[in-house]
């Protein structure tokens, strides 16, 4: 299978399909599903620019899936505007956490004049970048199919306060967490905690690939930083700590995992490792996301 085929059926179609055929019970997830679908477009856009995806077929994929998506998005935005429960989706904090170039692409998509040539990262077509870009795609597709990470992102960014509070008050043992990590079958709170840890791993692995690109000298420094910035900004919406609720929940998750690790490692007489482990966990996310100091209200 060509990597564009795998990307399309693995990263675009599942979320797109869920979104286009959603039912009432999915409504609370619609904002996250929409952002996931937009993010997939950004990966497609970058892959075409680098030459990892063939341009003409990339444009076909964009038209085939994203023309109906943008029509849907336009009507969804109107519906959220008319409902007057909060700001319309395209003015919501979660949407505005997408970078400017992404919002330009979305605007053009809604106006039916999207082109994958618009808003390039500036890196351009690079043969040497195809393999590492593919490594990033592999990580991204693993993240996309990870039920625990999805639960974590939904929990901290999109879940209603009542639901979150109810879920968060439940107990979670180290064994529950281990089950969530191992088999993705666990209570919602264990899944959130496991999702946080997996998300840290994703950030660390992605950063390793970026370091490898730098080490191999595939790009000159200015282009490397353009690339790194593009990869980071495409995903920044996942940890939108400018939202007070998200920042507070994120801190709660971080503290609970940190306490659990401290307790378990101390029980195992690995007390010296506690600080190192906590630092590593914290540093992982900092590698990919600019985490502003969080002030919990």
């Amino acid at each position: 299978m060509h990597r564009l085929q795998e990307f399309t059926i693995g990263a675009i179609v599942p979320e797109w399909d869920k979104l286009m055929n959603h039912s009432r019970k999915d409504e609370s997830e619609l904002p996250m599903m929409t952002l996931l679908t937009i993010e997939a477009l950004l990966w497609l856009h970058l892959g075409v620019e680098l030459g990892a995806f063939p341009r003409r077929t990339g444009e076909d994929v964009s038209r085939f899936y994203y023309a109906p998506f943008f029509k849907w998005l336009d009507s969804y935005n109107r519906a959220t505007e008319q409902a007057r429960i909060g700001p319309p989706f395209l003015e919501s904090a979660s949407y505005l956490s997408l970078p400017e170039f992404a919002r330009v692409l979305v605007r053009k998509g809604i106006n039916q004049n999207l082109s994958l040539d618009d808003q390039p990262s500036g890196v351009g077509e690079r043969n040497g970048m195809i393999a590492p870009f593919q490594s990033l795609l592999i990580l991204y597709s693993l993240l996309r199919r990870d039920a625990a990470v999805r639960r974590f992102l939904y929990g901290i960014g999109f879940q209603s306060p009542d639901e979150w509070r109810e879920q968060w008050s439940r107990a979670c043992t180290a064994e529950d967490l281990f089950k969530a990590v191992e088999s993705e079958e666990a209570s919602p709170v264990a899944m959130v905690l496991a999702g946080y840890m997996r998300f840290c791993e994703y950030a660390r692995n992605t950063n390793d690939v970026l370091d490898n690109i730098e080490g191999l000298g595939i790009l000159d420094r200015p282009r490397f930083f353009e690339f790194k910035d593009r990869v980071r900004s495409m995903q920044a919406w996942r940890l939108n700590l400018s939202s007070g609720a998200t920042a507070k929940r994120f801190e709660q998750v971080r503290e609970r995992v940190s306490d659990m690790i401290a307790r378990e490692l101390t029980n195992l007489k690995l007390k010296d490792e506690v600080e190192r482990a906590q630092r590593l966990l914290e540093k992982s996310l900092n590698l990919l996301f600019d985490l502003e100091p969080v002030t919990v209200q």
């Binding site: 064994e175 281990f178 496991a194 660390r204 378990e264 490692l265 482990a277």
Partner: peptide, 18 residues
């Protein structure tokens, strides 16, 4: 072996007690 697990992925630390 335990030291290696600590260097690996964060989710592996939680495997140590088990």
């Amino acid at each position: 072996f335990k030291g290696m697990l600590m260097q690996l992925r964060p989710t592996n630390w939680i495997a140590l007690p088990f």
